[in-house]
């Protein structure tokens, strides 16, 4: 179970993280080794329940309700026990 496919897809995913917001990370290789397909997941390929647990939503926040109210709705819609937001807009 050398997982050459997982290794390649993993590398592509890691590169996509850096490129989301910038030119990408220059990585130095210490041990050039593959990852096993026997455990773990490429983040985009997690089973849906895990995908949600490790997920993030870029929400188009409607004006009006507070961020806390919107987060509570998201929790209810998805049926998750925990959710948190990254920064508050000041009250209108």
């Amino acid at each position: 179970m050398l997982g050459l496919d997982a290794t390649r897809l993993g590398r592509e995913f890691i590169e996509s993280i850096g490129r989301l917001c910038g030119p990408g990370e220059k990585l130095l290789v210490k041990f050039d080794e593959p990852t096993s397909e026997g455990y773990g997941w490429i983040p985009t390929m997690r089973p849906i329940d895990k995908y949600i647990q490790y997920g993030l939503i870029l929400l188009d926040k409607p004006p009006g309700p507070t961020s806390h109210e919107v987060v509570a709705w998201v929790k209810r819609i998805l049926g998750v026990s925990k959710a948190g937001h990254g920064g508050t807009l000041e009250p209108p």
Binding site: I52, Q53, Y54, G55, L56, I57, L58, L59, D60, K61, S67, V70, V71, V74, L78, V80, S81, K82, A83, G84, H85, G86, G87, L89
Partner: peptide
């Protein structure tokens, strides 16, 4: 825009 993190 409001980034919302789930669970973990």
């Amino acid at each position: 825009m409001l980034p919302i993190a789930l669970e973990k």
